[in-house]
């Protein structure tokens, strides 16, 4: 019991600290729900003032007159998978992890708590911010769009009962979970960068660099394959996080496989279990690396 309270206090400390950094949280995490609000405001203006053809351009009244809220709610969770959303979240992670170096505050924290819980708690807090921000953005957009669509005279469907019976809940959970995992992986890159460079900007640069490296990893493996005359090397791409994330998502939602045909020449797609296992190894492997780096570090700032 006492231990739960200690952990809760540690979490609250981190949350209060980060949330107190107003402009960083404003620009790097609350921007997502605020963006949803902004879009909503624009939509309302358009619904109230613009002629029908423009309303259609803004997706308010589609040809058959119906707008699907489930897609809007799912869409909000897709933002962190876009390049720009990902970079913003990397910057947010950098503030959380590298900020302590910059403010010289590690020395206050370390005598009060062991290093491992301090670092793990930072990841937990980051996860909480991400869930709150994108949960809020998704809700704001999903519920809020009801108004402009109705004003524009469209249908806002499907009915809740129908949506719940269909795959919506599962799709939503899968979308949220894969996005969350993807965010955490990008975040761990940035956290590693923070441990290595001790600076916010350095952490962002390393985070983005690793992200780009992963993006190009298939090309790099293919190149290596053709260099060494072993084209099957490209199959290593199936070990990368991004491949496995989209593989998991498509397997659960029964959508077409993400495996590029080029890849299928050499390897069979990963099974669901294997993909989940690989992702697990990445997340915990990188987190462990972060913790190890930090544990061995001299804090002289």
């Amino acid at each position: 019991m006492l231990d739960v309270q200690r952990h809760a206090n540690l979490f609250r400390a981190e949350w209060q600290k980060i949330a107190g950094h107003r402009w960083a949280t404003g620009l790097l995490i609350w921007i997502f729900p605020m963006g949803a609000l902004g879009i909503l405001a624009i939509m309302l203006l358009v619904a109230l003032l613009a002629p029908p053809d423009i309303q259609r351009n803004f997706g308010l009244a589609s040809v058959n007159g119906s707008v699907d809220w489930t897609e809007i709610m799912l869409g909000a969770w897709n933002i962190p998978n876009e390049m720009f959303g990902r970079i913003i979240l990397i910057a947010f992670t950098a503030v959380i992890f590298a900020g302590e170096y910059q403010w010289g505050t590690w020395k206050n924290l370390l005598p009060r708590r062991r290093r491992v819980p301090l670092i793990v708690n930072k990841f937990v807090t980051l996860g909480a911010f991400v869930v709150v921000a994108f949960g809020a953005a998704s809700l704001i957009a999903g519920l809020g769009m009801f108004l402009p669509v109705k004003i524009a005279g469209g249908q806002y469907g499907p009915p809740l009962a129908e949506a719940l019976q269909s795959d919506f809940v599962r799709n939503f959970a899968v979308q949220a979970a894969t996005t969350f995992t993807a965010t955490i992986i990008a975040a761990v890159y940035a956290a590693l960068g923070a441990m290595l460079t001790h600076s916010i900007l350095g952490s962002i640069m390393i985070g983005i660099g690793l992200m780009i490296l992963e993006l190009f990893s298939m090309g790099i493996f293919a190149l290596l394959g053709s260099l060494f005359g072993h084209p099957e090397i490209v199959g290593l791409y199936q070990l990368m996080p991004s491949y496995n994330l989209s593989n998991v998502a498509s397997l659960i939602t029964h959508q077409p496989s993400v495996n590029p045909p080029f890849l299928l020449n050499y390897v069979a797609p990963n099974s669901l279990e294997l993909s989940v296992l690989i992702l697990f190894v990445w997340v915990f492997g990188l987190m462990t690396l972060t913790v190890l780096l930090f544990r061995r570090q001299d804090v002289t700032f």
Partner: peptide, 9 residues
């Protein structure tokens, strides 16, 4: 407050 909470109480 943040430091106290970091210490657990």
């Amino acid at each position: 407050e943040v430091l106290a909470r970091t210490g657990g109480a």
